[in-house]
Amino acid sequence: MSADAIDSWRVTLPCTRAEAEAIDAADDLAIDAVLMTSEEVEDDRERWRLDAYMEHEPDAAMLAALRALVPSAAAAEPAVTPLTAQDWVTLSQAGLEPISEGRFVVHTSAHPVEPPPGGRAFLIDAGQAFGTGHHATTSGCLAMLDSLADRTVSDVIDLGTGTGLLAFAARHLWPTAQVTATDIDPAAIAVTRENMVANDVDGIALVVADGALSEAIAARAPYDLVIANILAGPLISMAPEVAAIAAPRAAIVLAGLLETQRAEVVAAFERCGCALEAVDRRGDWTILRLAAGATRYVPERAPDPRGRDGWALDL
Rank of each mutant, 00 (worst) to 15 (best):
L148H: 01
T138W: 14
D32E: 14
G203V: 07
E55L: 10
A263C: 01
L145V: 14
F130I: 13
I157C: 03
A250H: 04
L173N: 11
D4G: 02
P248K: 12
L225Y: 00
F122M: 07
D125H: 09
D200T: 14
A181Y: 06
A60E: 15
L173P: 06
C272D: 10
I189L: 15
T176P: 07
S237Y: 11
W285I: 06
V207K: 03
W88I: 04
A247E: 11
F269W: 13
A177F: 07
R301V: 02
D24A: 15
E39I: 08
T138G: 12
G203A: 06
A246E: 08
D32M: 09
L66W: 00
C15I: 13
L235M: 14
A33Y: 05
A291G: 13
E241Q: 14
P305Y: 08
E101D: 10
D224V: 10
Y223W: 05
R151D: 03
P71G: 10
R45S: 10
I204Y: 02
P222C: 04
D24G: 15
R262A: 15
E270R: 10
G140S: 08
D87W: 02
E114F: 01
D183K: 07
V266L: 10
L13D: 04
A212G: 14
L315F: 05
R120G: 12
A239T: 06
D146V: 04
S154N: 15
D4V: 07
S214M: 01
A292Q: 12
E39S: 10
D146L: 04
M54Y: 00
V156G: 13
D44H: 05
Q128Y: 01
D158R: 11
L235A: 11
A60W: 03
V113T: 13
D304T: 09
E55F: 00
A312W: 10
A121V: 03
R262H: 13
R45K: 05
V207G: 02
L231S: 04
L173Y: 06
E194I: 00
T182C: 14
T176W: 04
G203W: 06
A198C: 00
E40P: 02
R67V: 03
W285A: 07
D59M: 11
E77D: 10
V106A: 14
N229T: 08
